[in-house]
Design a protein around this nucleic acid. Structure first.
Lengths: 237, 237
DNA sequence: ACTATTCTCGTACAACGTACGTAAAAAGTG
DNA sequence: CACTTTTTACGTACGTTGTACGAGAATAGT
């Protein structure tokens, strides 16, 4: 599940991260599990936002010492990757109609639903590196949906990346809008500011846009409209 | 310049932030300026990335004590807003042809150029709140370009937000790709990982996509293609 | 019983944003 | 001129963060 931004420095070898079930028999038995830790972190992010996910907090939630987490994830960044893939496991297999555009739109809606259920996801995707198994399974479905297009391999991957990036960006926008509506003082201050700017005479277009607002469409309708435009515009090669 | 994601808590009154030139005559003369501090922060981010922009570092760069910065920006978040608007001042007035789609594409390219010149910008936009004067000037141009569409006010603003979000998302992707190419060990590790997954037999579509990669297109061509699709797909009504 | 290996986690540290308070500088007022 | 008022400058200090280190505990193979 690529898409997003943020440079970053080192990271962890994905091969070692995602595909080993801990083969050893020697040594002390693990008291916790990657699953449990990841689930706790996800629950925390769902309930209190991504900034509540600190190593200390996750550890206490799971009943471990802080440093114990580092046996399961070598860096916090890794934990975030695990979280993303964890929730990606909630993605159902997309329906297949005969039409790849329809299928791709459905995929976009599934991604949006997931992001609305885990509102930290758009932000978390911004730094993400390598897709885990659940993300790859979903990617597999997306590639299958794109099969009729006859795009070449890298073009298919690019389309999926574009789609995911767009959805994350748009849902991030939706979430911020919704949050702004919940903080009426702040929203009012911003409205006052924009009105003041519009009234200064140097921003006639803005003034007109604000004075003829239309009523803001339902978020889902707006998303659907933009998604449809994006997908309908995709070239088949 | 809206677009991006990230919730956040309080923030600063935009009216107070953007529109007062410090009217008072009393009191000690400022030794620094918002401009100088912002410029130093931007230079730092350009040279060493957004994570190098710490209050201490900016202060030392500008020759001030750390806490002096707080006379010019009440929070670090505010400094980031100032940075975004600062570089938005580099945006030239977009050309106006008769065709709004052409104009909108040009606007997207201007935004991309800016983001490539300041690679921290996509990430910084993810948390940004209120547009400053330079961003508003550019928005004004974008609204003017959209005039022929006869979209209502909020729809125009949404289109601009969509465009900006898309550009930020895509350029963020470009930047990450470029950074990956600069870290050959890491890129090779990821390629090995994906190849291993493709070889496991459960990911036939991925296997095929990786085996028939086509050659990856030039980044600018890819951007142009996606931008064209997005804009061409926009509905005028 | 011994050794190797693995996990657990208390302590500690550097770096961060920033609250607080005091000192310094400028302007207004007598 | 002195004195008050206002504003900026910034040292110190606090709480929080990610995580390096290393000592102890548990398990398995010998």
């Amino acid at each position: 599940m690529p898409g997003g931004h943020g440079a970053g420095t080192a990271g962890v070898d994905p091969q070692q991260l995602w595909l080993n079930p801990r083969p050893s028999g020697r040594g002390r038995k693990p008291s916790f599990s990657r699953e449990a830790i990841t689930a706790a972190a996800v629950a925390l992010a769902d309930a209190e936002g991504l900034e509540a996910v600190t190593m200390r907090r996750v550890a206490s939630e799971v009943g471990a010492g802080v440093m114990s987490l580092y046996s399961y994830a070598p860096e916090k960044e890794t934990l975030l990757e695990l979280m993303v893939d964890h929730v990606s496991g909630e993605l159902p297999a997309p329906a297949r109609t005969g039409d790849w555009r329809t299928d791709l739109k459905a995929i976009g809606h599934l991604q949006r639903d997931l992001m609305l259920r885990h509102t930290w996801l758009p932000a978390a995707l911004a730094t993400r590196r390598t897709p885990g198994p659940h993300s790859l399974a979903f990617l597999e479905h997306a590639l299958a949906a794109l099969r009729p297009t006859r795009l070449d391999g890298s073009a298919k991957l690019e389309v999926f990346s574009l789609l995911t990036g767009f959805v994350a960006s748009h849902v991030g926008y939706e979430i911020r809008q919704a949050a702004a509506a919940d903080a009426p003082g702040r929203a009012a201050a911003e409205a006052r500011y924009l009105a003041a700017v519009a009234a200064d005479g140097h921003h006639p277009e803005l003034a007109e846009a604000l004075s003829a607002p239309g009523r803001p469409p339902a978020p889902e309708a707006l998303f659907t409209r933009f998604l449809d435009r994006l997908v309908d515009g995709l070239d088949t090669g």
